[in-house]
Structure formats: C-alpha cells, structure tokens
Amino acid sequence: MNRTEEQRLVAQAQRGNSEAFAVLYRENVQAIYRYVYHRVSDRHLAEDITGDVFTKAIEGLGRYQDTGNPFLAWLYRIAHDRVIDYYRKVNRQPTESDIEEQSIPIESDMDSGLVQEQISSVLQTAIADLTPEQQQVVMLRFVEGYRIEKVAGIMGKNANAIKALQHRALRALANRLERAGVDIESMMAGLT
C-alpha cells in the first residue's frame, strides 16, 4: 500500500468508515503481532496485546495526525506502550538466570530446527532485558529489517540517535550472552 492510499484510508476511517479501518488493520496486524511477540515471547499473550493495540488505535484515531511517517509507526508506538504496560502490571522482567537456565550447549550434530529454537529462546530472553528503546530498535532494525532512517521515523528520533541506540543494544546483548556463557561462535556455526 502506498502512502497516498494509506492516507486516504486513514482519512476515511477518521470519518467513521469501518471498511477503511479494516483494511488498515489487515495491512498492519502481522507487523504489530511480530513486534509484540518478540517482546513477550508468548503467542496468546501477543495476540491479546495486538488486540489491545488496535483498540487503542480506535480510541485515538480521531486525534491521529499524519506527521509524514507511515500509519504503522503510530501503531508501533502504541504497541510499545502496551508492552511496557504489560510488564509494569506483571512487575517482572527476565533476569540473567533465565538465560543461564535456557542456555544449553549447541552441538554440531544438533537438528537445525532445534538450534534455531534454542537461539531464539536465548535471544528473546536477552532482548527482554534491554531498555524499552533498545528493544524497539532491535525489533525494527534486525527482526523487521528496516533501515536506520525508517526506524528513526517510527521512533521519532534522528538517525544518529538510532545508530547510538543500535550500538548500545548490540553491545549489551553481546555482553549479556557472553556473561551467560552462551557461545556465540557455536551459535553462528549452527546458523550456517
């Protein structure tokens, strides 16, 4: 969907056109779900929070102003806030011991699917220990694969700030994995 089409749909939705909003929902729901899923690591919880994101979007649609960024950028911000709210309610963030408990040696003859699962599990636990902004950069930059400029637009920051956040997130993750005894080299080998 191009920007003009998206702007038209947003304007229609703001005037009460439910079909326009449904199109916006279908266009963005998977990206929001992936974003939330990687932040909470639970499919059902991710579905619930994704629903909350669109409920909040409906409530705020009348106040929404196009600032030149995609509609998805606004939804990401809502999703980010919902995830923060969730963790605030449950009052828990993963700890270093969580990674250590999950960390099992990756053997060369391990099934590739199992390696992938193990890497995902360890990384998601480590990501959850980053600051909310670092988590957002990691998700948008490396999981969704957006370029720096687009991440900057979504997060409302300039590109240099995102580069700095990106570096701090990667450094923190690398340190975190190292402290937890995770062998990055063997993980990398497991990927190939």
Binding site: S18, F21, A22, Y25, R26, V29, Q30, Y33, R34, Y37, H38, R43, A46, E47, T50, G51, F54, T55, I58, Q116, I119, S120, L123, Q124, I127, V138, F142, V143, G145, L170, L173, A174, L177, I184, E185, M187, M188, L191
Partner: peptide, 27 residues
C-alpha cells in the same frame, strides 16, 4: 555476530483464524 543472530530470529505470523477473529472484534 549478535546482529546476525538477531536477524535469524524466527518471525512467526499471527494464525489466520486469529487474524480474522480479531478483525471482527476490532471492526
């Protein structure tokens, strides 16, 4: 290396039936 590992994170999609159910609720 860490960035490449992150890139390998599987990106599960929301199941189609869940997407439809949620769409009905949202609408």
């Amino acid at each position: 290396q860490t960035a490449l590992l992150l890139r390998s994170l599987s990106a599960p999609g929301m199941p189609e039936d869940a997407v439809k159910t949620l769409e009905n609720r949202v609408v």
